[in-house]
């Protein structure tokens, strides 16, 4: 495009300004038009509606575990023995990778509730069954890349950066919890 001679001396013209303004509004409008499509990929309402479950604990004997599905992920519920509780509480918190005391991770000492997804790359650790490999710390062991979790679900050895997540839950009564 060739601009009139006198405007060339000024460098910028009203026309340049209007072109930039129109371009900027076009870009903003485009972003608004794209957003509904991106947002449609976020969790849908029915997916979000599945985000709480109730679990009956009365069937789980001391020393046993149960796996329930919550938000498409397994949640480990463990009825811990006295030894397991003691083992979890005797550890020096400062020596841990992800520093968290056992008291901060449970509401009642005998019940450990944790999301059963390894915090490394999302595999399911073993240790829910008596015969499983429980790792070096009597909790869970992730076979994918060798992360060891203790009886409080805390990372003790291996590549995982964090402890097994504790989901939000509450005791509805002595033998029922609501997760989510």
């Amino acid at each position: 495009m060739s601009a009139p001679k006198e405007t060339e001396q000024h460098g910028e013209t009203r026309r340049d300004f209007m072109a930039i303004l129109a371009g900027a509004f076009g870009a903003i409008g485009g972003a608004f038009a794209v957003w509904p499509m991106i947002n449609s990929l976020n969790p849908a309402k029915d997916t979000l509606a599945l985000s709480t479950i109730e679990v009956d604990l009365s069937q789980i004997q001391k020393g046993q575990s149960k796996t329930v599905m919550w938000q498409g992920k397994p949640v480990f519920i463990r009825h811990r023995t006295e030894e397991e509780i003691t083992e979890a509480r005797e550890v020096d918190v400062q020596s841990l990778t992800d520093k968290q005391s056992d008291e901060d991770r449970v509401q009642k000492p005998e019940w450990l509730v944790a999301v059963g997804v390894c915090t490394h790359l999302g595999c399911i650790p073993q240790g829910q069954k008596q015969t499983d490999n429980h790792g070096d710390y009597d909790g869970w062991f992730c076979p994918c890349h060798g992360s060891h979790y203790d009886t409080s679900g805390r990372i003790r050895k291996g590549p995982a950066p964090k402890n097994l997540a504790v989901p939000p839950y509450e005791f509805l009564n002595d033998t029922t919890i609501k997760i989510g």
Binding site: L41, N42, P43, T47, S51, Q71, G72, L121, C144
Partner: peptide, 29 residues
């Protein structure tokens, strides 16, 4: 799919949100 989509959670600040956006939920489903 789980391992590879979890890689995105390593991105600082927005990683977890990007992962949820990829999944459309809370796990590969």
């Amino acid at each position: 799919a789980t391992v590879i989509t979890n890689l995105f959670s390593a991105i600082p600040f927005v990683g977890e949100d990007i992962r949820t956006l990829l999944w459309g939920g809370f796990a590969v489903d």
